[in-house]
Write a protein that binds this DNA or RNA. Structure first.
Lengths: 194, 194
DNA sequence: CCGGCCATGTGTACGATTTACACACATTAC
DNA sequence: GTAATGTGTGTAAATCGTACACATGGCCGG
């Protein structure tokens, strides 16, 4: 494919990728649509042909993030023996948050939820949660569906809280060796269930 | 005090208050220094006499938030019998996050930690955590100081994860009655400790 | 009482951002 | 070949952070 053509060819996907890449070393707040456009080598207004809004782009990026997270959970579960699956998921979740904190911040940020949701975002998020709930249920079959959900909500809360607090540096004033590991937190929580 | 005087008198505190008020119905991202200035009825540049930077103002707001949080934890602990203190703290934490999600987002956001920290922020945060750790230790005396800290880190993680996920609407696709209560989560977690 | 100092607020200005609108170009269908 | 449609460009307005020069007025020594 020629390099200097007028039409990019796959601008939509390229913008999502570029945004995710920019989020690696930039706050979501200081992220600009223009930067993403520059990164892709296109004019500042071209993105508006593919995304109604800056929020629409971020919504697509977030949906992508939830899809990645879902696969991460699935792979962790499938690649680990049953008794240690939840710990593996917890560790993977923390690594994901540590590796791409900006992306996580976009995924859970208030901006996307406030207004109209991006198509696919809801579904992707639901998928990630379902994957987690399935793993929880496979390890500790629950007596009722609601118990299963409550279990998953509890596990998600611990993982998410620990991972984000850690990534955000909220434990900065504590020496690293004092902190429990992600696997520890999960197994302590898991031993009792919700 | 006359209303149309040239000097505001207490602009610094007024700006912090105004910012916190604006955060009640506005994303931290869409918050502007100029809005805070308008809210107080002062020119766009006046804040720069009291805060070097937009970040400096946000830092002061965050420190204020941590101070509020600390008192909240202290009051919850003091006002509740020992056996239910941690649950009370958890409930209060969730209410705080639900009431002022924007403030919480500023407090834990990456922006303040990335660059130079605001004087007092670190101290306020440390104070809030110390208050929590003290409450944990009072309820379940730990065998070693590290265990105490790990306990507090675990508790903070569950509370924070649950509260922020909930406030951000991440559980939006679940019916409310399916969710565990904050108190439940805390007591399940507490039963085993870390 | 008075004149000056200096902390504090104002006005103007610049570059960057989001986003609306009109226009230009290329690819595809006929 | 040409019209139609999808896609990128250019221009422009509103808002924002912030730097600079200037105005104001409360507090000081006299």
């Amino acid at each position: 494919m020629p390099e200097n053509r007028y039409h990019h060819g796959n601008l939509r996907a390229a913008l999502i990728d570029a945004t995710r890449r920019l989020l690696l070393d930039r706050d979501p707040e200081s992220l600009s649509l223009r930067q993403a456009a520059r990164e892709v080598g296109v004019s500042a207004n071209a993105p508006y042909r593919h995304f109604e809004d800056k929020d629409a782009l971020l919504g697509a990026v977030a949906a992508e993030g939830f899809r990645v997270l879902m696969e991460l959970i699935r792979d962790s579960a499938n690649g680990t023996e049953t008794s240690k699956r939840l710990e593996a998921i917890g560790v993977a979740y923390c690594q994901f948050v540590a590796r791409e904190p900006g992306l996580v911040r976009v995924m859970f940020g208030p901006r996307l939820r406030a207004a109209k949701r991006h198509p696919g975002l809801d579904e992707a998020e639901r998928g990630a949660f379902a994957e987690l709930a399935a793993a929880v249920d496979a390890v500790e079959p629950s007596t009722s569906p609601e118990d299963g959900i409550r279990n998953a909500v509890g596990l998600w809360s611990v993982m998410h809280g620990y991972a984000t607090l850690r990534a955000d540096g909220a434990f900065g004033f504590l020496d690293a060796w004092m902190l429990p590991s992600a696997a520890d937190l999960v197994s302590y929580f898991r031993r009792v269930g919700v």
